[in-house]
Amino acid sequence: MLIPHPLLGLRDAQEFTYLGDANLMNRPDPNAPNAEAMFCDYVFLRDNPAGVHRELWYHEQGDRSWLVVTRNTVTHEILGAELASDVALAHREGSK
């Protein structure tokens, strides 16, 4: 597979390490009253859709960027890739 790195252009998937569901970026609030239950979901439960999926890839053999890659798990078509830090910051802005 080729992954369109937002800074480096098309890069071979072999340069990356795969993590999985981009929801792993949404670490629960440790101070919430039901924090333990929320962390259980966060740690152990993942979506595994057949179709469009947002997932985390790490450019380990490259610039060490974490990317959020939108990929169709059925066709392997890649619909986009963003820097995870941009996504995380935007998410924070949005939730303010």
């Binding site: 390490t17 970026m25 670490r27 985390l56 380990e60 974490w66 995870a84 830090s85 995380a88 924070r92």
Partner: peptide, 18 residues
């Protein structure tokens, strides 16, 4: 060594980019 560094980068970029 490699995994801890990967996790630290994950935390820095994905969890606490601020």
């Amino acid at each position: 060594a490699g995994l801890v560094y990967r996790n630290m980068e994950f935390a820095r970029q994905c969890l606490w980019p601020e």
